[in-house]
C-alpha cells in the first residue's frame, strides 16, 4: 500500500520548515553590513553623490547598558566660513525601525560643526554620521555599539 503522506516525507518537510526561521536568522546575523558609503540610507541623504570617510568624528560609547538614551557627538572638521562650511549632518541607524535618527542644519553662523545629543538605539548596531558640506561633498564616520537593553522594542 502506497501512502501519499509517508512518515519519512513528513519528517523531511517538517524539518525543512522548522529550520527555515533559524536559517533566516543566521543569514540576517551573518550578512555583512554594507559599507556605510554604499548604504541606501546614506545614499538617500547624499542624493547619489560620493560619500567619503573622513572629516567627521562620531563619538559614541562602544557599550551602552540601555539603548534609550545613548550620548552621541558629531564633530566635523571645517573652517565654517561662508565659502566652506557644513550645511547638514544626518545620524543614521543600522537597525532602528526608523533609520534616520536626526538631521541637523547648520551654517557659517555656527562657528564650529560640533553637535551632541542623546539617541535611542534598538539593539547593537552601527551608527553612521554623514555631513554635507557647502561644496557638495559628503563625508561620514561610522561607529559600532553594543547595546545591552534595546530601546523601542516593547516586550509586553
Amino acid at each position: 500500500m502506497k501512502h501519499a503522506f509517508s512518515r519519512r516525507g513528513f519528517l523531511a518537510r517538517t524539518a525543512g520548515v522548522l529550520a527555515l526561521p533559524a536559517f533566516a536568522r543566521l543569514a540576517q546575523a551573518q550578512t555583512p553590513a554594507l559599507a556605510p558609503a554604499l548604504d541606501p540610507r546614506v545614499q538617500a541623504f547624499a542624493r547619489g553623490a560620493l560619500v567619503r570617510p573622513g572629516r567627521v568624528t562620531l563619538t559614541l560609547p562602544s557599550l551602552a547598558d540601555n539603548g534609550n538614551s545613548v550620548p552621541a557627538r558629531i564633530v566635523v572638521e571645517s573652517p565654517m566660513s561662508a565659502a566652506d562650511h557644513v550645511k547638514a549632518i544626518r545620524l543614521i541607524s543600522d537597525r532602528n525601525p526608523e533609520p534616520v535618527m536626526a538631521t541637523f542644519r547648520l551654517g557659517p553662523q555656527s562657528g564650529r560643526a560640533d553637535i551632541a545629543t542623546r539617541v535611542r538605539l534598538a539593539g547593537s548596531q552601527r551608527v553612521t554620521a554623514v555631513a554635507e558640506c557647502s561644496d557638495g561633498t559628503f563625508w561620514y564616520d561610522a561607529r559600532s555599539i553594543v547595546v545591552t537593553i534595546s530601546a523601542c522594542l516593547d516586550e509586553s
Binding site: 534609550n68 538614551s69 545613548v70 557627538r73 545620524l91 541607524s93 532602528n96 525601525p97 526608523e98 533609520p99 534616520v100 535618527m101 536626526a102 541637523f104 547648520l106 555656527s110 560640533d114 553637535i115 551632541a116 545629543t117 542623546r118 539617541v119 535611542r120 530601546a151 523601542c152
Partner: peptide, 12 residues
C-alpha cells in the same frame, strides 16, 4: 524622530 531619546537634549 523616535531615534532621539525622551527629553531630547541638544548641544551645538
Amino acid at each position: 524622530g523616535p531615534g532621539i531619546g525622551a527629553n531630547p537634549y541638544l548641544q551645538f
